[in-house]
């Protein structure tokens, strides 16, 4: 396994910090930048779906934040 324990600890601490901290509420009129297309988690869904299909076919890792996707007999 190529992940080590210090990395795990940093990860866990970061997550706890993220979700336990009181992030300042961003008001609707302050969200112009957050609403931009380039700030979307997935700003080009078709390209992302195609890329996921290619990488799942050519590498041994599958899955993303939105799920594993369908299968194929790709060689």
């Amino acid at each position: 396994m190529i992940i080590n324990k210090p990395i795990c600890k940093i990860l866990i601490v970061s997550l706890i910090a993220l979700f336990s901290s009181a992030c300042t509420t961003v008001q609707p009129w302050e969200r112009a930048n957050l609403a931009k297309n380039e700030m979307a988690i997935n700003s080009d869904p078709m390209q992302a779906a195609f890329s996921q299909h290619v990488y799942t076919s050519k590498e041994s890792t599958s899955g993303s934040s939105s799920g594993a996707g369908g299968g194929c007999g790709c060689n």
Binding site: P28, W29, A32, A35, N37, N42, S43, P45
Partner: peptide
């Protein structure tokens, strides 16, 4: 805000 701010349209609204 999105309409005025976005240069390109938002295809990926969830």
């Amino acid at each position: 805000l999105a309409a005025t701010a976005a240069v390109l349209p938002n295809i990926a609204q969830a």
